[in-house]
Nucleic acid binder design. Structure first.
Length: 305
DNA sequence: ATGTCCCACCGCGTGGGA
């Protein structure tokens, strides 16, 4: 089972890119952020034609999140991050898909910092912390995926120097991200890649993509129930290299089927992908990385073309 | 300070947000 998160930066502008990505990579679950579309402008029909059921929380101009499921309908659990009835921004949605609780979030950017936007970011993270604790303790397998707008450490950015004052690197942001990990959540991409550099976002400025000057801000956090099923993770960098791309690349994990007390036809089907062997060469090409490799994570050169 | 790209507004350019 492949679960991806992708900040699409305008779902209608990027619809061809989204459909192409779905066709080629066939994620079982896709969490989207920055739809930048009101509720009634979400391209549900085109996405359904591509074989995906979807739920979404739209908003005019900004934000907006969605959860897509291949050959399935996500069962919505909730929308809107609890804890502040005055917060009307569409940044959070939850669903049950394939026996897993999927949380899709778009954390506030927080710039400029300091200021009210940064205050909102920190307050939002405090509220997320509350909800995350509930999910962690739920006894159900849970993934919290999305654009966290946090660079967890200086190893998650090409060069922190010019970003020191940015909200994405502030100690207050990083502390709050760390507090999620302290609850017991595992940063799946970091877990799989070890010390190897991996980026998910390259802004549009100063030829950052061409120079591979990236940041890792799209994360998938797994609770203790789900972690044992983590098999591999990767970034679909080819998407960022397409014409008119989002500034983010899809970031994903591959999960083994549940330790079946009662195996189902569905879980047997998804095993097919998991069992697919990934050679080192293929891994480099696809940006995939297997969990629990025998050798320590090697630093792979990922030069941009 | 800069850089680029998206969306909305009314509108064929500009401002806000990232």
């Amino acid at each position: 089972m492949k679960i991806a998160t992708f900040n699409i930066n305008g779902v209608n502008t990027r619809l061809p890119a989204l459909l192409e990505w779905l066709r080629r990579e066939q994620p079982d679950v896709a969490c989207l952020q920055e739809l930048k579309a009101p509720e009634d402008a979400f391209p549900a029909d085109a996405i359904a034609e591509a074989g995906y059921g979807a739920i979404w929380h739209g908003q005019k101009s900004w934000n907006g999140v969605a959860i897509l499921a291949r050959d399935a309908e996500p069962v919505e659990i909730g929308r809107g991050l609890p804890g502040d009835p005055d917060d009307l921004q569409s940044r959070y949605i939850e669903a049950a898909v394939g026996g897993i609780v999927v949380v899709c979030l778009y954390l506030p950017n927080g710039n400029p910092q300091p200021g009210p936007k940064f205050d909102y970011k920190l307050a939002w993270m405090d509220r997320l912390h509350q909800r995350a604790q509930q999910w962690f303790d739920s006894g159900q397998p849970v993934v919290m995926a999305g654009d966290y707008n946090v660079v967890p450490t200086d190893e998650d950015i090409y060069n922190p120097k010019s970003w020191r004052k940015d909200a994405l690197l502030q100690p207050e942001s990083r502390e709050r991200y760390q507090r999620l990990l302290d609850q017991g959540w595992t940063d799946a991409v970091r877990h799989v890649f070890g010390e190897e550099r991996v980026y998910t976002f390259w802004d549009y400025f100063r030829q950052h993509w061409e120079r591979d000057a990236g940041l890792r801000i799209d994360h998938l956090l797994l609770n203790a129930e789900l972690l044992p099923r983590l098999r591999s993770a990767g970034v679909d960098r080819w998407v960022r290299g397409q014409a008119k791309p989002s500034d983010h690349a899809p970031t994903w994990i591959e999960l083994a089927p549940p330790k079946a007390t009662r195996p189902t036809a569905k879980s047997a089907k998804s095993t097919k992908q998991t069992a697919k062997k990934t050679t080192k060469k293929a891994a480099k090409k696809t940006g995939a990385k297997k969990a629990a490799t025998k050798t320590p994570a090697k630093r792979t050169r990922r030069a941009a073309q």
